[in-house]
Amino acid sequence: MAEERAISLSPSRTRSAFTSAFMSSPRPPRKRNIELGETFVVALLVASGAGCAYLRGWEGIWRALRFSADLLLEITPMMVLSLVLAGLVQVLVPHEKVSRWLGADSGWRGLTIASVAGALVPGGPWASFPLLFAIGAAGADIGSLVAFLSAWELLAISRIVVWELPMMGGEFVFIRLVASIALPVLAGIIARRIPLPLNLPRPPRSVGRSS
């Protein structure tokens, strides 16, 4: 099985359109197919950078750069670890099980499983997003992914225990939890009704295998 996977790893896929467009490579230009999302972020970067320079001057630019560097330093060790974790999840969890439990036909039961799993993930976005990608690549549908991410955002047990309970108190946490507990499943139900395909930036392995 691992060998099969290795074969379908095409090197052209690993180097995204974005990379080739922004890291001026000495190699001959490949077919440029910049995604909408990438175009948007780069446009936003240019606009916000110009706005920052105009409104806050060089001092603001410098502050923003230092903020970026701090953020990068803080998330790097966690990101490396969680990428390995996501890779392990991808090879260990059988695809047919993920698509049965969390696929498009999994119903509200799948959304509930995804929500419980999302609430159990500790840590920041460096932990949740690689996992989210991994279960998406393994065959979970967009509704389950939305439920998983929403549950992590709203109900993450570790964040509640570490931050919210000590700082906001029991009554606030109780009221907020009762008000939010159904929202991940609800978000998943709504997401399943929106007819837009889940195009993960790097195509799932199974697609490469079947074609």
């Binding site: 948007f40 997003f129 967009i142 978000a187 997401a191 195009n199 993960l200 930036p201």
Partner: peptide
């Protein structure tokens, strides 16, 4: 995180939901 890892379609659907 979300846009780089999950793509624009996921972001649109999740935000709309």
């Amino acid at each position: 995180w979300e846009l780089p890892m999950m793509g624009i379609n996921f972001v649109i659907v999740r935000l709309a939901a």
